[in-house]
Amino acid sequence: MRVLKFFIGIPLGFLLMAGLWFALFQLQLGAPSASSQWVDDVVQKKMQIAQRIQPNADGQRILFLGGSNVLFGIDAKRIGEAMAVPSINLGLSAVLRVDEIFAVAKKNLKPHDTLILALEYSYYHFNDNFSSIEIDYILAHDVDYFHALPMDKQALMMVEISAIRLFGGLAAKAFSPEKSLGTYKIKTINAYGDETSNARSTMPQAYIRHMLEMKALSHRLDEKDKFWSLYKDFLQWCAAHQVRVLVSFPSYLYFPEYEQAEQRRFFDGIAAWHRKRHIPLLGNAYDFMYQYEDMYDTRYHLNDEGRRKRSDKIIELLKRQAVMMSTSPTR
């Protein structure tokens, strides 16, 4: 009899645990986790800055959009002064999925804005898979995104969540708000949205060692990746809302391997895709590759010296192309 009860208990336990798991999941939804707090702080601060900085008398603004390569590697203040156009660093974090980045941009763009896109190369491979840090952010700070997902994706996310993240979320719900973890602090972002904590003079030796030990990554371009359909939609939205789009490239740690034919196909392929659609480009991928001396703590993050070089390059390219004089928005 006991053995029979044992066998009855197995499906019962399975269902009970499933129910408990999903209940706990629902309960912690929207609770700010410490690990994703900095990303949300960045998003909120960038939204405030974008709302505060208004267009000039000609109705112009420049917004730089991307992940943290833009956050760390663009000096919007310097560019704005050089171009005499109010400029905003809308660089966020690559923890955000590319459609989340586009959603933030859509909330902050106005007609006649100039949007300079410099997306991380990893975004060009973007697909439907969710990494644990993406799930972490979505569950904590982008519940609408979660609810907008198809049911199968929602269910997958419910079971993919780790127990530590689940209970961390519940703890955050009970004792919120959690403090931000990690080395980055929101207070070092200036009034234009530029991250200013990346001074070369004070950066730890470990960061330099870390750069020296890095290896080249292999990239490939495949228009079947989900990125491209999302990207096309976003570009159409910009055209419909009279937002002028210029496409640039992220700051990136240089490796000689990137000069090889196979890798060139990727970098040149991005440029070719835009040229084919008459979308203006600001430089090429190699213009924004830097030696380790100019990098900060990741292969995308510049230090202040690298940021100065990149910003000067962008100023030069903007002036040369005189894109600000152009009148027709990108189609």
Partner: peptide, 24 residues
């Protein structure tokens, strides 16, 4: 460990958690 309803429930619960890893 005992072979009874409670431990059956524990086995079922542990099996569910293991199953979540299959999907991940």
């Amino acid at each position: 460990w005992r072979i009874n309803m409670l431990y059956g429930v524990i086995v079922g619960g542990a099996f569910f958690i293991a199953c979540t890893k299959w999907l991940a």
